[in-house]
């Protein structure tokens, strides 16, 4: 593989939240959620981010997307990173039809006229493995897997180069999980997407990713290629994680 340029560089990123004060006169503490996180991502790479609950995975994603204030430096090549959320039930507007939801990203970008937008929506629905009839349905008429496909379609409408998937399959059952992962893999190959894949499932990460980072308590404790991390880990915590997942090496 030729050397490709970085699509995302994060250097010494720190995020802290104000502790919720219990009383009016109590001293307010700041909780450090991310401590000095640095990494970079190559174009067309699938980067796994693994860690236990509360380790700051989602916070990192939000910081990259600019949804929360942070200190440090985040440089990205693509200006519109998109995100796939964990819960496919909350990430589609229940009052709107699928077609409307998928057209909205184009509308917001000042995209083409109505007929062209509908055509794009139709293409994208087929691309993510749904029927074009789904455009006329409401999200609550779809199953979890179908919803997640719509979410992926919506995230791809603005043709982002970086996609952040925050536990995209953990709310789905196993067979649907496999289908969604397959879809992500196919889109990655077809469109040359870079994916930051956040998960707590080490097996899924092994299957999907080129490189992987292990996070604990807001710090990156280990990063490297999948082979390095899985077979020659240096950190004890990584070993514990692998053991807990039943992966014995």
């Amino acid at each position: 593989m030729t050397e490709q340029k970085d699509i995302l560089t994060v250097s010494s990123l720190c995020v802290s939240f104000q502790d919720r004060s219990k009383g009016l006169f109590q001293k307010k503490n700041r909780i450090q959620v991310l401590k000095n996180v640095s990494f970079s991502m190559k174009e067309g790479e699938v980067l796994g981010l693994v860690g236990e609950s509360g380790s700051g995975k989602s916070t990192l994603a939000k910081a990259i997307l600019g949804l929360i204030p942070y200190e440090g430096k985040i440089t990205q090549v693509s200006s519109y990173p998109q995100m796939i959320f964990q819960d496919p039930y909350g990430s589609l507007n229940p009052a709107k039809k699928v077609g409307w939801i998928l057209e909205e990203p184009l509308r917001l970008k000042g995209g083409p006229d109505s007929a062209k937008r509908k055509e794009r929506v139709r293409e994208m629905l087929i691309r993510v493995g749904l029927d074009e009839k789904f455009a006329d349905r409401y999200p609550n008429q779809l199953s979890g897997g179908q919803r997640q496909r719509v979410c992926i379609a919506g995230a791809l409408m603005q043709e982002p180069r970086l996609l952040i998937a925050d536990e995209p399959v953990s709310a789905l059952d196993v067979t649907i999980q496999a289908q969604i992962l397959e879809l992500l893999e196919r889109l990655h190959k077809e469109m040359g997407l870079s994916i930051l894949f956040i998960s707590h499932d080490l097996r899924v990460v092994y299957q999907m990713c080129d490189n992987v980072m292990i996070m604990k308590g807001g710090e990156l404790v280990e990063q490297g290629t999948v082979e390095e991390v899985y077979f020659h880990h240096k950190n004890e915590y990584t070993g514990n994680l692998l053991q807990a997942a039943g992966i014995h090496i």
Binding site: M83, F85, S91, N93, I101, E104, L108, K109
Partner: peptide, 28 residues
Amino acid sequence: NMDYVKNARLQGAGHLRIMFVHILPNTF
């Protein structure tokens, strides 16, 4: 705080659009 509102923000929707186009229909 729903994810679809975050999503709309990521796609570049302004506050007014989120308020009256995305959220308001859910209060009907």
